[in-house]
Design a protein around this nucleic acid. Structure first.
Lengths: 205, 205
DNA sequence: CCAGGATCGATACGATACGTATCGTTACGG
DNA sequence: CCGTAACGATACGTATCGTATCGATCCTGG
């Protein structure tokens, strides 16, 4: 993974990039996003803070590169089984947000980049596009197999999947378990039940 | 709306609460969440920063109260029309996140409160529970009318609705338009199409 | 209507992090 | 093996933090 958010102006490149990015994730885990200061990362990495300022223009850029290294955007292999492939897609998204750092830092990052269109574009390229393309490929295979409606809105499906997972992790705190994964997959299938039902009917609050 | 995040230790109460909360939202709109410092709010409100520190224990608490004042958690009236009621529920959520401040500050707030369970609980009570109860009431009316499956998972429905809306606003930047609202509502109906389709078949992406 | 208590604004304080500049040292590649 | 860069250390001025203090002001209840 290249340092997409690094300045990278000079001719060679940072010698201690991975040491710094590891330290950034360590600080993130131990102290949380607000306490992640450049000076703290420098201390944790055993590095002069000058070195960090040399290569990353801001705390946001540093965090983005640190997260990009552990963000999963795998290709979904053709398993000949639409359900299994979609389940793999959902599981990958759940994996990404199960990570504590990712769950807190990604939304904080997006929120602070939102007013800066150019940085936001780079953020989307790093954390959205590749993953979405790979999942879209799996969805299209499902459509061609006749397992999914041929006018399926693949973008909306992915918004629903990732949105629900992010929302549960960030806001409600509900578990990201296999039931959720299965419900989200079943949302896309042709036949009912299209909307997930509760396992055991309860009175719901 | 009471100042749920204020310390409120003394006997009387802040004389200039609304002036301060208005200023906080002004700074948020003009400068963004990271630039929202206590001193900036104090200056914008024409108030000594001591006064803010007297009543709010942190920047997060101040922002939470400022957002709580404009967060919509309306009751959904019984319209005798399930579709109309659900549409109203979705529109309310879209309204909440269409607001620029809310879209950037709420996720940032949640992310910074996530490691503090007690504050996170108060956050959820303020920004989740009341709204969810009101929407759940509408969903239950729909179930009793026979318009919705009687084992509908009302919690998951709301996670999907709010999650998709938040994700679009924060991450993808896709529009929160009437098409989206309609698709989200139709997700819950019994009869196909349960998963929203694209209007005009395109090549996807 | 006035007294007393609470809130207010102003100011000062040490601490921390910012981002930049400088400078001598270290490491790596041609 | 030598030169070019990346490096670490250090120092600097600025900004904000959160706290303490203190006299002025509000406003409430008696």
């Amino acid at each position: 993974m290249a340092l997409v958010f690094s300045s990278g102006s000079a001719t060679s490149g940072p010698r201690s990039a991975s040491k710094i990015l590891n330290a950034a994730r360590d600080v993130l885990s131990a102290q949380g996003y607000p306490a992640l200061t450049i000076e703290a990362v420098a201390a944790a990495a055993g590095v002069g803070k000058t070195t960090i300022y040399r290569w990353w223009p801001s705390k946001e850029a540093l965090v983005a590169d640190a997260l990009a290294e552990i963000f999963r955007a795998d290709e979904i292999p053709d398993l000949g089984d639409t359900h299994a492939e979609l389940r793999q897609a959902v599981d990958m998204t759940i994996d990404n947000y199960t990570n504590e750092d990712m769950a807190t830092a990604l939304p904080a990052l997006a929120a602070s980049l939102l007013p800066h269109p150019e940085l936001m574009t780079r953020f989307r390229e790093t954390f959205l596009h590749r993953k979405r393309e790979n999942i879209a490929a799996a969805l299209h295979r499902g459509i061609q197999r006749g397992d999914l409606p041929d006018d399926l809105d693949t973008d909306l499906v992915q918004d629903i999947w990732a949105g629900t997972i992010l929302y549960r992790r960030l806001m409600t705190g509900s578990p990201l378990d296999t039931d959720l994964a299965e419900h989200l997959v079943q949302l896309t299938t042709k036949a009912p039940p299209l909307l997930p039902r509760r396992e055991s009917p309860r009175t719901s609050r």
